[in-house]
């Protein structure tokens, strides 16, 4: 009966869900060059990404991960851990959720928002690597600050939402889904909303 009906997600997602690649099995023993963690189990998703860097070529040599989350969270982190190998740190840093979803043969829109966090964990891992190796200028240049831990919304995305027309906290939520889970970031988000409004729209 199974085969007669299409699975909930693409075959690629199914494959990575059933056979997850590069799981970080023993974190304590893994000598990562950089490690990042994003999400929050309260929101249903949390990810750790640990990388090893080929320092000559400035590329990613190994990528391991752990995920607390749904099938698409597991599959998307698994596929990420494959596609980043050999990419330069710059390339890897700029991977987006959409890139990952595309590799997986597509995901429903709401799943991209809530479960594809691997690239953010990867960014955090790369930043961690830059910090550890004294390249703090690199971090400052790149760094987006996560404001909403639950939905992983960054200051850059908030600024973008303001530029796209968000003027109130509610509109900001509609644009970014920020603050829709635990709500802890509300005060901070409102403060930033005001700052960006001032920055871009006051005379």
């Amino acid at each position: 009966m199974d085969n007669k009906f299409q699975w909930v997600y693409s075959e690629k997602v199914k494959d990575h869900f059933i056979h997850p690649r590069n799981v970080l099995e023993d974190e304590a023993k893994y000598n990562a060059d950089g490690r990042g963690i994003v999400g929050n189990i309260k929101c249903g998703d949390e990810m750790i990404v640990a990388i090893k860097v080929d320092k000559e070529k400035n590329t990613i040599a190994e990528c391991k991960w752990k995920t607390y989350g749904c099938a698409s969270a597991i599959a998307s982190t698994s596929i990420l851990s494959e596609i980043v190998i050999g990419k330069t740190l710059d390339q890897a840093y700029h991977l987006t959720a959409k890139d990952i979803a595309k590799e997986l043969g597509g995901l429903p829109e709401h799943k991209i928002h809530c479960s594809v966090l691997g690239h953010k964990a990867l960014r955090a891992a790369i930043e961690d690597y830059y910090t550890r190796s004294g390249m703090t200028d690199k971090v400052e240049e790149e760094k987006a600050h996560i404001i909403c831990q639950c939905m992983n919304v960054t200051d850059i995305e908030i600024e973008q939402a303001v530029l796209e027309g968000a003027r109130t906290y509610l509109e900001l939520q509609e644009h970014t889904k920020l603050g829709t889970v635990c709500g802890q970031c509300k005060d901070k988000a409102i403060q930033m909303l005001e700052e960006y409004k001032k920055k871009h729209f006051s005379k």
Partner: peptide
């Protein structure tokens, strides 16, 4: 430490 949708879908694969 386990998320429900993942549990549901792994169990579904077992019928």
């Amino acid at each position: 430490g386990a998320e429900g949708e993942a549990i549901l879908l792994y169990l579904d694969l077992e019928g």
